[in-house]
Design a protein around this nucleic acid. Sequence first.
DNA 1: TTCCAGGACCGGG
DNA 2: CCCGGTCATGGA
Length: 276
Amino acid sequence: MFVKNAEKYTLVSNVGTVNLPITLDCGQAFRWQKITNNSFEGVAFGVYTKITQIDENTLRFDNITDEIFSDIFYDYFDFSRDYDSILSTLSNDKMLKSTIEEYGTIRILRQEPWEALCSFIISACNNIPRIKGIIERLCNLFGERAYEGFYTFPHAERLAKLTNEDLAPLRAGFRVPYILSAAKMVANGEIDLDKLKSTSLEEAEKSLMQINGVGKKVADCTALFGLGHIEAFPVDRHIKRICDSCYPLGLPKFFHPYEGIAQQYMFHYQRMVGEK
DNA sequence: TTCCAGGACCGGG
DNA sequence: CCCGGTCATGGA
């Protein structure tokens, strides 16, 4: 690992391969704003930064120190995991092989648990541009200023005090009461998201599905993108279509325990072919 | 106007 | 267990 800290940016190389644009904009996170084809800006864990892809092994983080990178973004990008090795294994599947070759390394982001849960409650029966809009209004209205024009994701404790009317400006429709019920259960400790990081996936799903508005799909997205359960395999309508046609007898055994990574390639693949 | 979007819930069969 | 209707919103 090589980290070079200059006056106002941190250059990171040789911590693992990554396709930055796809990783940040493949539908697992909703808050990164594209500046150019290879640079994005946004807020994670309360910290604003601008990230630029220099090459497959090198990222530039503007506005943060090397310590902030080590404390926050190293884990956020799941750099402790050896994706080259995992992707090599997953490439034993014909369809995944061509997708991996085309798109490179899509990393599973380790997002804030509450942000992941809340975001995927909002994702229900919704499209990605509108999900992004709702979440942006949520942060702008109830988050804290992290940088000029950028706000943190509001904590569950903050949202738990609000009413349906307070959230009306989000224009989130039938999802508003779901957001509030989740916020209350997280804020009062009925759901302990950090604890669910170290339970079994089944235990985490079971706990999350106690929340009104959280079914298996949203629970699995929360487990995968917010709790580090890399074996979680969220099945939405796109993934179901692929599974029915490509894996009618179930997923190949050797996907385990990296079903979550396989899922993200399948989802991105389906998104790309669907755009034609 | 109708259809659709990273679902979940509820009712009836 | 599985089926259809329903839930708001907005772009195509």
